[in-house]
Design a protein around this nucleic acid. Structure first.
Length: 486
RNA sequence: GCCCCCAUCGUCUAGCGGUCUAGGACGCCAGCCUUUCAAGCUGGAAAUCAGCGGUUCAAAUCCGCUUGGGGGCACCA
């Protein structure tokens, strides 16, 4: 199989790609890389009316972000281009002509209004909606009459009226459809553009695609494609219909499911490696225990045989957990690189920019195991950057400690700290004994100082935090806390 | 409505006739660690394997039916 594998990701630029689309791309990519085949990107822009500006770029960006590089397609070229279907119109028209000559198709002059009305009728009678084949056997005369009226026809495929259409799906096994339940679908629209069915089949053949891995939603159009391949004298590729990724309501992913666009995950601070890992495990598994798996291992082990059949709900919680796992694996340098952009946009405007990387390098290790999604970073770390802390004075004398006690403790602490070198070890050497001296539990003193210095009750370890903040800032904040208590 | 697909803890999944009183992970709960929060570690609750019939010495695993869920049914992809 190795030398012949050519797979493709063929999205239509009608919107920003969501995780479901990209999961399909990922499986194709993994399949190609596993068998050392080719991964082809083809843009199926045959619907002029639904084309969305910037969608193609969003597709490129999404794939690039995840590191799903394509061997042929926009930007890289290839021997089977062009890779935009809108640039291949003549090809489809030629093929359609061939089909006309072969009698596999016919011209249909039915107006959209009539078709719509027909479907409404069918629905009302609880009949399956589908083209009633009115134009299937038009006489020469009827045809010329319609032509004389200036109607531009569409080209429809002549489906068999009876019999079964069978095909082997690599994931579903044998799938059988009754031909009688399938209607004559459109191949060429009246604007001269091909429909998905025509363009997709033609291009998959012309581009020598060996395996079509696509979402399950395509399963029911596969028998049509099989017929088309037959009429064209093409050998169909192998099909593998991937289980769908579902929203929390178990329905097909759509805009109404909230943040599903892939780029949104980038914006929120997910790492591409984590997303790849997570997406790969949605519908595929290595074994009974592997959760964290590298791209290399995925490529080495990916196989269609281990792709499941049931749809999978996209679980944000688990993705967030996994992202945290990947964040913790980052080196300090990598973490600084990753986090900087998020701080730039997330920190209040009052913080002076640019943020010093040196300062930041000190605090990054304190944050690294406390973050799951990079976008959380500024909220978690803002006290390292802002000048004025804003918090409720009551936090300073919460449990067990009264106002006077807090004032006294802060006062002494300030005094001792003044003479203390500001590294974590020295700070601990001074503050731990101080707690005993004051007759306070360490937790009480440290908690008090934590609030004074960070403005919150939950923060990174106190000594490291104080060391990073520096003596000046800490003393000033303790003074501010004292003032707040008065 | 018609056609097709699917069905193991709330979620993602392992399981491909006996090793399953069903394993792992997320989340949840508890304990440990600990200056808080995390992280980490340990333990726990959580699935009568959708139901019912078969086949078989033996079924989560094979078959059928039912139910439930999903997808498709455009001059959209």
């Amino acid at each position: 199989m190795s030398d012949s594998v050519r797979v493709r990701f063929a999205p239509s630029p009608t919107g920003i790609p969501h995780v479901g689309n990209i999961r399909t791309a990922l499986f194709n990519w993994l399949f190609a890389r596993h068998y050392k085949g080719s991964f082809i990107l083809r843009i199926e822009d045959t619907d002029v009316t639904r084309k969305v500006e910037g969608a193609a770029e969003a597709i490129f960006d999404s794939l690039t972000w995840l590191g799903l590089d394509w061997d042929e397609g926009p930007g890289v070229g290839g021997d089977y281009g062009p890779y935009f279907q809108s640039q291949r119109l003549e090809i489809y028209q030629d093929i359609a002509k061939r089909l006309v000559e072969g009698g596999y198709v016919y011209f249909c002059y039915c107006s959209p209004q009539r078709l719509e009305e027909m479907r409404r009728e069918q629905m009302k009678r609880k009949q399956p909606p589908g083209y009633d084949r009115r134009c299937r056997d038009l006489t020469e005369k009827e045809r010329t009459e319609f032509e004389a009226q200036g109607i531009t026809p569409v080209v429809r495929f002549r489906m068999p009226l009876e019999g079964q259409i069978k095909f082997q799906d690599l994931i579903r096994g044998e799938v059988v459809f009754e031909a009688a339940t399938l209607d004559d679908f459109v191949l060429l629209k009246s604007d001269g553009y091909p429909t998905y069915h025509l363009a997709n089949v033609v291009d998959d053949h012309l581009m020598r695609i060996s395996h079509v891995l696509r979402a399950d939603e395509w399963l029911s159009s596969t028998p049509r494609h099989i017929q088309l391949y037959g009429a064209l004298g093409y050998v169909p590729p192998q099909f593998a219909h991937l289980p769908m990724i579902l929203g929390s309501d178990r329905a097909k992913l759509s805009k109404r499911h909230g943040a599903t666009s892939l780029m949104e995950y980038q914006k929120q601070g997910f790492l591409p490696e984590a997303v790849v890992n997570f997406l790969a495990l949605l519908g595929w598994s290595l074994d009974d225990k592997t959760d964290i798996i590298s791209r290399e291992e995925l490529v080495a082990n990916f196989s269609i045989e281990r792709v499941g059949k049931a749809g999978a709900i996209f679980n944000h919680e688990k993705l967030a957990w996994m992202n945290g796992m990947y964040i913790r694996k980052l080196s300090t340098e990598e973490m600084v690189q990753q986090v900087m952009p998020f701080l730039e946009v997330g920190l209040p405007k009052t913080v002076t920019r640019p943020i010093s990387p040196d300062y930041f390098r000190q605090i990054v290790p304190l944050l690294q195991e406390r973050v799951r999604v990079l976008g959380e970073i500024s909220e978690l770390a803002d006290f390292f950057f802002v000048e004025e802390l804003d918090y409720d004075a009551e936090l300073l004398h919460k449990k067990g400690m009264d106002r006077e006690g807090a004032i006294a403790a802060l006062w002494v602490s300030r005094e001792r700290l003044e003479a203390c070198p500001f590294d974590a070890a020295s700070l601990e050497g001074v503050l731990r004994p101080l707690a005993a001296e004051l007759g306070l539990k360490t937790g009480a003193l440290f908690g008090l100082l934590r609030v004074a210095v960070t403005g919150r009750t939950a923060a990174p370890p106190l000594f490291e935090t104080m060391a990073a903040l520096g003596k000046d800032r800490c003393l000033k904040r303790i003074e501010a806390a004292l003032a707040r208590l008065k």
